[in-house]
Computed example of a mutant assay.
Amino acid sequence: MQNKITALLIDDDAHLREGMKGLLHIYAPQIQILGEAYSVKTGVEAIKNYQPQVVFLDIQLTDGTGFDILEELLAQYGKINTYVVFITAHEQYAIKAFRFSALDFLLKPVDPDELNNVLQKINKVLQKDEGFAHIDLLLENMRKKVDTFKRIALSNADGVHVFDISDIIRCESEDNYTKFYIKNSKPILISKTLKDYEDLLADHGFERIHQSHLINLNYLKSYIKKEGGYIIMADEAHVPISQRKKERLQEILKNL
């Protein structure tokens, strides 16, 4: 029998709260809903009163946003002590911020498969009791209201690690995982595909030069044309270039 996980629903739409309770009843009977809230004020009070392990938090509320709730909790306690899953409509800026912060979100209407993926992660994280420092990164990004984020949270079996994007030298695909090579740090393996990070880092000077390799152009040291062509990076790694990427890379090098 699975251990019970205590949770709170915060959404200003009563119908959506009912729908979410129905989904959780079917797909996650181990989750015990302690209470509900519909606003920033009632949400903060409910979290303080119930102290749930998980909060399913809508972004847009009657008197503010879900981010306001987290800011209020940080102001009062100095940290967040609950796992937060955001529920949102298609708000591209917020979704981008979630991805850079390694935070979970569900799009309305909630898809059962996506919910199941999030629930599996909740179980793993709560077993590790790793803390929620990446929420600080999310709020930092939301306060700035800029599209170009400076730091990224990477979540793996050891916990959540926050790095300056400018310190990432390169990323390498390992099946459905991505290995990050980072300046002055050990490599870190993340359970997401290289494609996920190719999209996320495209605006930060990263270029995918091979099916298995995404590089930070700022760390490109040499382009060697012999032996089929390869790159030497600042960490002395020799990175192959796919045939179809050579022309694109040569064009980039001309403009550097």
Rank of each mutant, 00 (worst) to 15 (best):
Q2I: 08
Q2W: 10
T6K: 10
T6I: 08
A7L: 12
A7E: 04
L8D: 07
A14L: 14
H15D: 10
R17F: 00
R17C: 10
M20L: 09
L23V: 11
L24G: 11
I26T: 12
A28E: 06
P29Q: 02
Q30R: 04
I31E: 04
Q32V: 10
A37G: 05
Y38S: 11
Y38Q: 11
S39T: 13
T42R: 01
A46I: 02
I47A: 00
Q53H: 00
V54M: 04
I59C: 02
Q60V: 00
T65Y: 01
G66A: 05
I69W: 09
E71H: 14
A75I: 04
N81W: 12
F86G: 09
I87F: 14
A89V: 15
H90R: 14
E91F: 09
E91V: 11
Y93V: 12
I95A: 03
I95E: 03
A97G: 05
F98T: 03
R99Q: 13
F100E: 10
A102D: 07
D104W: 11
F105C: 07
L106S: 02
D111W: 07
L115W: 03
K121G: 04
K121Y: 05
K124V: 08
K124F: 09
K124G: 01
V125W: 00
L126R: 00
L126S: 03
L126M: 01
D129E: 09
G131R: 06
H134I: 06
L137T: 05
E140Q: 12
K144W: 10
I152R: 12
A153Q: 06
V162G: 04
V162I: 14
I168S: 06
I168M: 09
R170E: 03
R170H: 03
C171A: 13
C171M: 08
E172F: 10
S173W: 02
S173D: 06
S173L: 06
I182F: 12
K186I: 08
I190W: 01
S191N: 10
E198L: 09
E198Y: 04
L201Q: 07
A202F: 11
H204P: 09
F206E: 12
L214F: 07
N216R: 09
N216Y: 14
L217G: 11
N218D: 15
Y219L: 11
Y219C: 09
L220W: 13
K225P: 00
K225L: 00
Y230T: 05
I232S: 05
M233D: 10
D235V: 01
E236R: 11
V239C: 04
R248G: 08
L249A: 07
K254L: 07
K254V: 05
